[in-house]
Design a protein around this nucleic acid. Structure first.
Lengths: 141, 141
DNA sequence: AAATATTACTTGATTACTCAAATATATCTC
DNA sequence: GAGATATATTTGAGTAATCAAGTAATATTT
């Protein structure tokens, strides 16, 4: 009927939909999942800054999507904007100290959710992806 | 800094974002990814019909989301609505012959995209999920 | 150095969802 | 069999993204 490849990709989509709803608890910190990942990336970036385009690439969204996400984050003071002296097209995103603080707080929540989702994993070594997806609710066949 | 579990989930999100953009080619058939999956599930369901709630569960979305998706699909004649004689709360979704035809056409496209995305997989046996995600662009660290 | 192409980013219009609440029906409990 | 609870679905309001097109600056070609 349908290939294993296509099935796998449909199941990744399903798992992601389920998982992203579980991360709704990040909203207690005023963050969506993508906001959290952005803060994570900036927190680990050299000088706490990245170009928008590199951020987009790293997080797997389009430049447009990143622009939309950053708007509210600038407004609430999680990140700021800084120009590049050599190239006026570029504007860096920099995480603020508020951003770092919120990230640390949200990380606790996110880790708890992640642990909860993957709790069945225990000490077994890494399984094949389809088994993992199966256990995560990816059971389209 | 951050657990492997959380990293894994962030990478699933990233991969899904990348993959779903690649499936944009389904729009040539007037479908989004979720529309395609709905048609697939109905196509394989007994009597080509499912309750909305079961569809939601199977696809991994909320009942609300399913309602929103089905509206346009009813309008374009891919599916119809049928009542349950025993339980007036329930309305079945049934795939139409048009829906079946469009599904078969879209399946060709979807299979091509899936094959393209997973082409590197070749005949190797299933790899561990993080390696797979890595190859799919899930390289957040 | 002028013309062309490329890159970084933003914007307008749209889609695909979410949650919380509402509605309607069915099922349980006493 | 009346009242309380549970289930299936829809709706209102909002969020998180998309693409295509636009702007502005830089880099490349001629």
């Amino acid at each position: 009927m349908i290939s294993e490849d296509l099935l796998l990709l449909m199941n990744i989509a399903k798992v992601q939909a389920i998982v992203s709803r579980k991360f709704d608890s990040l909203s207690a910190h005023g963050l969506g999942v993508s906001d959290f990942v952005i803060l994570y990336l900036l927190h680990n970036a050299p000088e706490f800054r990245m170009r928008r385009i590199d951020l987009a690439d790293k997080i797997g969204l389009t430049a447009s999507g990143v622009t939309r996400l950053l708007g509210p984050m600038e407004k609430t003071g999680l990140v700021t904007r800084e120009a590049n002296e050599r190239d006026a097209r570029v504007s860096y995103v920099v995480i603020t100290s508020t951003g770092k603080k919120i990230f640390q707080e949200a990380k606790v929540t996110a880790e708890r959710v992640a642990k909860d989702i993957l709790s069945f994993k225990k000490n077994k070594s890494l399984r094949a992806i389809s088994e993992l997806l199966q256990e995560l609710g990816g059971n389209i066949q």
